[in-house]
Measured scan of single mutants.
Amino acid sequence: DTFTFTLDGIEVRLHGASEELIKTIEELLKRDIRWEELEKWIREWEK
């Protein structure tokens, strides 16, 4: 599955994202998160 969203005018596609990761990103997007914050968060998630 591919999860697609737009952040700061950039279309982002995550391939093979888990349901948990998708739900977490959706929550972060509701908080009007900035790209830099999401990028940092995703790097931490990957560890």
Rank of each mutant, 00 (worst) to 15 (best):
D1S: 14
D1M: 11
D1G: 13
D1L: 15
T2R: 05
T2W: 12
T2V: 14
T2P: 12
F3G: 00
F5E: 00
F5P: 01
F5L: 04
F5K: 00
F5S: 01
T6R: 04
T6P: 02
T6S: 08
T6L: 13
T6M: 12
T6C: 11
L7A: 03
D8P: 01
D8Y: 03
D8Q: 06
G9T: 03
G9D: 08
E11A: 05
R13P: 03
R13N: 13
L14G: 00
L14Y: 03
H15L: 09
G16T: 05
G16C: 11
G16N: 15
A17Y: 07
A17P: 07
A17L: 10
S18A: 07
S18K: 05
S18Q: 06
E19V: 15
E19W: 13
E19C: 10
E20N: 10
E20I: 12
E20Q: 11
L21D: 14
I22R: 09
I22K: 11
I22V: 10
I22G: 02
I22Q: 07
K23W: 08
K23Y: 07
T24H: 14
T24M: 15
T24W: 11
I25T: 01
I25K: 00
I25L: 08
I25A: 01
E26G: 08
E26R: 12
E26T: 13
E26Q: 13
E26F: 08
E26I: 13
E27L: 09
E27S: 09
E27W: 08
L28E: 02
L28W: 10
L28M: 15
L28F: 12
L28Y: 06
L29K: 02
K30C: 04
K30G: 06
K30V: 09
K30E: 09
K30R: 12
K30S: 11
R31H: 12
D32N: 12
D32M: 05
D32Q: 10
I33F: 05
I33P: 09
R34L: 07
R34F: 06
W35R: 04
W35A: 04
W35I: 10
W35N: 02
E36I: 12
E36R: 09
E36L: 12
E36A: 13
E37V: 09
E37W: 08
L38M: 13
L38F: 15
E39S: 08
K40G: 09
W41F: 15
W41E: 07
W41S: 06
I42V: 07
I42K: 01
I42W: 05
I42Q: 01
I42A: 01
I42C: 03
R43D: 10
R43A: 13
R43P: 03
R43V: 11
R43E: 12
E44H: 05
W45F: 09
W45M: 05
E46T: 06
E46W: 09
E46C: 08
E46P: 06
K47N: 15
